[in-house]
């Protein structure tokens, strides 16, 4: 006899007063999660007044949370008609110390990591130089596909010297690699140098990410070292630019991304 007349309702739970995170950030994150869950694109989100009533927060706080989501590109204002979910990217990852899993779950989505390939190979000269090992030393080459809610988002190509973590050959890598390295192998990656560039997807990358040959993707290259400065891993992370963006919080005194230099890519063997 139940008539399931089920619409999307915009219920937001109460904001946790014990959480030290600023209120507008809590609301922003909750709103983001709600939107990622699925809110019809043609439907304006509830008015400020309704959001205030739902959350018990002030108009200023509600406005600030919404303004941030507009700035992020998750919402767009259509003056007169309301505020809507923006057409473009709905997925956001934050850089920092959170794992992929944590970042995705924070949005209310389901992260899945698939190990595409794991093999024991011999380091080529470029890899050996970066990792400060002998050319020809054994390394693990791990290829993993990260999906969010069933859709491919990132493919990782990671190289870790066997001597750093011999048991990687048989480890469960569907979770956080960093947590495994820190926990089971006792070599937590401590600091890293990362670069970000735009490249055209091709071959295996394009296939795994399910994008057309030549589609733009982000490429993050990382060299991570232990607290004693020992290189632990190098990774090339190809990211679907339509599904992710990276956000950096520049703390007090460091506003703006510093341009350190311009790489002449002809000089360097980046393979």
């Amino acid at each position: 006899m139940a008539l399931s007349n089920d619409f999307h309702s915009f219920e937001l739970g109460p904001i946790d007063p014990a959480d030290p995170t600023p209120l507008y950030q809590q609301l922003r994150d909750r709103l983001r999660g709600k939107l990622v869950e699925g809110w019809p694109k043609e439907r304006p989100i509830p008015s400020e007044r309704v959001l205030m009533q739902m959350t018990g927060l002030s108009r200023m706080t509600v406005r600030q949370a919404i303004a941030e989501l507009v700035h992020e590109g998750m919402l767009r204002r259509d003056h007169g008609r309301g505020t809507f979910v923006a057409d473009s990217r709905v997925m956001r990852l934050l850089t920092g110390h959170s794992t992929f899993r944590d970042a995705v779950q924070k949005l209310g989505s389901t992260p899945v990591t698939q190990v595409i390939r794991r093999e024991r190979i011999f380091a080529n000269p470029a890899q050996a130089t970066l990792l400060q090992i002998e050319p020809g030393e054994a390394v693990f080459n791990i290829v993993r596909l990260r999906k969010v809610d069933g859709q491919p988002v990132i493919v990782d190509f990671t190289i870790v010297p066997e001597r750093i973590c011999p048991c990687l050959g048989s480890a469960d890598l569907t979770g956080s690699l960093y947590e495994y390295l820190a926990g089971t192998c006792g070599v937590p990656p401590d600091h890293s140098t990362d670069t970000i560039e735009a490249v055209a997807a091709s071959g295996e990358v394009g296939e795994l990410l399910e994008v057309e040959e030549g589609a733009p993707v982000l490429l993050l290259r990382r060299l991570a070292r232990s607290v004693h400065d020992v290189p632990i891993e190098i990774t090339e992370e190809f990211v679907r630019s339509d599904r992710c963006l990276y956000q950096l919080e520049n703390p007090s005194g460091t506003a703006g991304i510093a341009l350190v230099g311009i790489l002449d890519t002809n000089l360097e063997d980046r393979s």
Partner: peptide
């Protein structure tokens, strides 16, 4: 429409 948003179904 406003009340539907807050979870009303009738």
């Amino acid at each position: 429409l406003e009340v539907l948003d807050v979870g009303v179904t009738r």
